[in-house]
């Protein structure tokens, strides 16, 4: 590649990044230090009220009172995202491993099937779960069939939210995990059995360590969008438990507090960047160990 191309050829890419990624981040950052407009919207200024609002509320006499209510929302969001990631990981590993053992033709078909839900709108998919878990839905019918008399009500529970999140994002876990296990030399697994290792030993000491780049990559791909997810908490969780995504949406919508919504969005962004930095450090450390 000529030097000219390296500079000028990448202009479209840089322009796109600037317009769709960097500029919006600056706008959101700008809004977060703005002032709340009288009738929604905001006015430019430099005011950290929105950030203060995350940790403190103003008491009757204008004194600051520490209020963990938003911290709890952030912690809850992290918790659900971590839970959904862990469940996805546990489900994706056997699925990906099983796919990797099939014939070349079946592999292509199965991987296509894994990505199939992506062809359907997210809202439709979440609504499908609404119907499955709802009153007299499939879940309740099955529960009754196996002798359950009083149905606990599946919808609007933490479980329903997790089911929705895992369902929405698990393909993002399966694909990188599959890519990693697919590269494993089957002789290594045979070697671990040959050396008196059970299936569990092979999984723990050979498959997982060698597939770890894929496991970590998939976990990030699931964890990050789960942090900002809106539909599952709203539709399947019934909005009973506020999460960061919903909170941000509320601030820009009903509550008409753009600066506060933007401030929460910035916190979310920082959390995501933190996860990515931690992963990058881990990856370079691993490279150093290998070198």
């Amino acid at each position: 590649m000529s030097k000219g191309f390296r500079i000028w050829g990448l202009v479209p890419a840089w322009a796109l990044m600037l317009l769709t990624l960097i500029l919006p981040i600056f706008i959101v950052a700008g809004v977060s230090v703005g002032e709340r407009g009288a009738y929604g919207g905001f006015e430019w200024s430099f005011d950290l009220t929105a950030y203060r609002q995350i940790l403190f509320t103003l008491g009757w006499t204008d004194e600051l009172e520490f209020d963990p209510k938003y911290l709890i929302i952030i912690a809850r969001t992290l918790g659900y995202a971590a839970g959904a990631t862990a469940i996805s990981l546990l489900l994706a590993l056997p699925v990906a491993y099983w796919i990797s053992l099939q014939s070349a033709r079946d592999k292509a078909l199965l991987i296509y099937l894994v990505t199939l839900p992506f062809w359907v709108s997210m809202i439709v998919r979440v609504y499908a779960w609404l119907i499955i878990l709802g009153n007299d839905g499939m879940a309740e019918t099955v529960y009754r069939f196996f002798g359950g008399s009083d149905v606990p009500g599946f919808l609007f529970t933490p479980g329903a939210m997790l089911v929705g999140m895992v369902y929405s994002y698990i393909p993002l876990m399966i694909l990188p995990v599959y890519a990693a296990v697919e590269k494993l030399d089957p002789a290594l697994i045979e070697a671990s059995h040959d050396l008196y290792g059970s299936r569990w030993t092979a999984l723990r000491r050979v498959i997982i360590p060698l597939a770890s780049p894929g496991l970590v990559g998939g976990s990030i791909l699931v964890f990050v969008p789960c942090l900002g997810t809106v539909l599952e908490p709203m539709l399947l969780g019934g909005g009973r438990q506020l999460m960061m995504g919903t909170l941000i949406q509320n601030q820009f919508g009903g509550a008409r507090d753009w600066p506060f919504g933007a401030a929460i969005a910035m916190v979310l962004l920082v959390l995501v960047v933190l996860v990515l930095i931690l992963n990058a450090r881990r990856a370079t450390r691993q490279l150093e160990v290998q070198a």
């Binding site: 002789a187 290594l188 040959d194 050396l195 008196y196 290792g197 059970s198 030993t201």
Partner: peptide, 30 residues
């Protein structure tokens, strides 16, 4: 994994993430 038989594989199938000592110790640990 229950047979007292060991194999030298054609392409050796050494565990790439383990040191040579760890490779040799693997069967003994199991």
């Amino acid at each position: 994994h229950k047979r007292r038989v060991n194999t030298v594989f054609q392409n050796y199938a050494l565990f790439p993430h383990m040191t040579l000592s760890q490779n040799i110790a693997f069967g003994l640990e199991n």
